[in-house]
Design a protein around this nucleic acid. Structure first.
Lengths: 110, 110
DNA sequence: TATTTATATTGCAATATTACGATATGTTTT
DNA sequence: AAAACATATCGTAATATTGCAATATAAATA
């Protein structure tokens, strides 16, 4: 149905899914990588960098911001975007959990 | 258009997006967490654990498997599933990259 | 205040995802 | 071989996502 049964899962599971989903698009990966490279920039810079129209970039930025992966400050008439540690910190905890499991239990099954 | 312009992005960006997208659903987060808890199990166990129908679980397992996040071995007439380090290793590299950036550059902008 | 510059929003078309009933496939057991 | 068990696939309905043209909004500057 295209609709996810979020009510059947925990808040944490839903939050993690939202974060991962926000990262799950190549344009948004490219935006994150670009922000790491230039530290911070305005929306127009990303529009020039990526082969997507301005409204599309704006939409991707909105999703990254809603997920807590980037933040933006008004700077004159433009908005300066950069990474937001908060979102990445939350995902990091999940992957730390997975990694510590994988390091201890090596090829138990499969 | 619902269609992602993968051709405009690098293979690495597309692969990372595929991995993150596979994790980006609460049911698949729940499956990963359950596999960490029980180490390995068959599909039917997950069907009993989660409030989703068997075909839906089967579909989610397929996506996790295609992304390289889980693997399955035939064991009798059932299939034993467990986490696959390969997929997680690839995502880990990306997050390590992000984290080392975030640790060095604290609140440069925003 | 009119113009320019920068970004967001709206509306829409095309495609993707989610979910499940019904059914198919394959393996084990009787 | 038939029945039981385990999982995958098919078909379909409902909803979500992606992308962009057109347009709106908002700030800076002339």
């Amino acid at each position: 149905m295209g609709i996810t049964k979020t009510e059947h899962f925990t808040d944490k599971q839903n939050e993690l899914a939202t974060l991962a989903k926000a990262i799950g698009h190549p344009a948004r990966i490219a935006i994150i990588e670009y922000l790491i490279k230039v530290n911070s920039c305005i929306c127009g810079d990303i529009v020039n960098e990526l082969p997507l129209a301005q409204p599309t970039i704006s939409q991707h930025l909105k999703e990254l911001k809603n997920a807590g992966l980037i933040k933006g400050n008004f700077e004159g008439n433009a908005i300066c975007y950069c990474l937001d540690e908060k979102g990445f910190e939350k995902i990091k905890l999940f992957f730390n959990h997975v990694d510590s499991y994988l390091e201890n239990k090596k090829n138990q099954c499969c």
